[in-house]
Nucleic acid binder design. Sequence first.
RNA 1: GGUCUCGUGGCCGAGUGGCUAGGCGGCGGUCUGCAAAACCGUAUACAGCGGUUCGAAUCCGCUCGAGACCUCCA
Length: 496
Amino acid sequence: MENNLFIHNSLTRKKELFEPLSPPHVGMYVCGPTVYGDPHLGHARPAVTFDLVFRYLQHIGYKVRYVRNITDVGHLEGDADAGDDKIGKMARLEQLEPMEVVQYYANRYHEAMGMMNVLHPSIEPHASGHIIEQIGMIRKILDAGFAYERNGSIYFDIEKYNKKHPYGVLSGRKVDELLAYTRELEGQEEKKSSFDFALWKKATPEHIMRWPSPWGEGYPGWHLECSAMGTKYLGEQFDIHGGGMDLLFPHHESEIAQSVAANDKMPVKYWMHNNMITINGQKMGKSLGNAVSLEEFFTGNHPLLEKAYSPMTIRFFILQAHYRGTVDFSNEALQASEKGLRRLLAGLQCLTPLTPRPPVPPLQLERGPGCEVSAACYAAMNDDFNSTVVIAQLFEALRIINAVKEGKEKLPENDMVVLAQTYRTFLVDILGLVPEEQSGKKDEIINGLMGTIIDIRAEARAKKDFATSDQIRDKLLKINIQIKDGKEGASWEMAE
RNA sequence: GGUCUCGUGGCCGAGUGGCUAGGCGGCGGUCUGCAAAACCGUAUACAGCGGUUCGAAUCCGCUCGAGACCUCCA
């Protein structure tokens, strides 16, 4: 497959030409959510980012297997190895089965992602469903001599690993430096070194989520599920591994160590990391207490929000920044996105009447504004998925579309087809931006009623009875219905 | 302390050694009975200081400032 897609590889910190291990197939693994709380804006960012990657890779002809996990085994809350696991704690608090908690929040996550038009991954494995694979991987690591057992727990031996393979290749860390500045944490007395990490933890009597293993009852370590499930579904080596930047160390670093220890191979060719969403310049995070949930965005029910923002607005807001940069949340920025998006989507409506029918096949035309926009969009996407520049190009396309519509500009037929196709393809198929559902709001009865009201108002205006026409307009506006007077009569729209 | 990132016009945000980013807001206009919406046009910028260069906001150095990771985290 020919392309010149460049991807920024966190491993080398450079943009590299994308060459899959076995084209046309691409294997992509992305770290999914830990389902112990409502999805927030931070969850939306990697989901939308890698949805874009998924869509674009498919668009340029790759067959992509996209694996995104659900983390549903007890990861520890609080420092080190002490404390409860998150899901178990939630289960106890709410008197639920742990799997009930998991199911509930997984559903919530899926609902929110669906509203933002995030495609489902090809496989969505649960960590709890892959305990056997994780135990198998621990065995391989033990056999290779890179792990040790202490009181029913298994730890990864970083010092030993580091003698044979460099630990820290992804995050640029050195083991000596890690040693020099490691916090004193409790519950680490079992480990040889403070930065050794658990592959398997023995369950304390009160721990709810537990599975039998050759080393007794316990649960898998935090980093292991991704290594085990990635290997299972994508092989010992695969193309792309994605996730948030905050996972780079120690999570992804440890994944590399585990896979190299078990399989003696670097597991991933291209590592991709999306940046954080900040709020007042600070990272938004559940544990920092400044996360705004997606539900709160959709309803506007949060002190920081001036109004509700639709799922599509949030998607657009995320895509308006490049995935490797931070995005700062603010009402002003969100409202700017909302208005811009509305214009872009309105442009979609103009397209059909402008496009010749039956469509002229886009011949080998290389000139004209449509072709230029198309080339620029592909160039932007090929440059490490630069959705920001794609959007700028779409606004340029929109300007042309409006000019053509008003008869101010005329494009060759072929070029107009290219322009229309480019606009639709990039906006809808690749960026995944679609008009919001108006279902239930704009049904037949309402349309009929509104038609009648608009007719009456038109009559009043014809008679210059502006008192009546203004009254209609203003009263409707109070219930969020906006009358839009145009050259060919009035139309209406539900305001947000 | 270590590793790393960033500092662009009122706000959000691309990009680049010489050629318009874009959006929102502002301003001006078209349309309208008036307005809103829509559409068109337009101004304001590259943290500071020094260096490299014919030329730097873009490369290098320093200063100041912000942030991320080093502990669960998207």
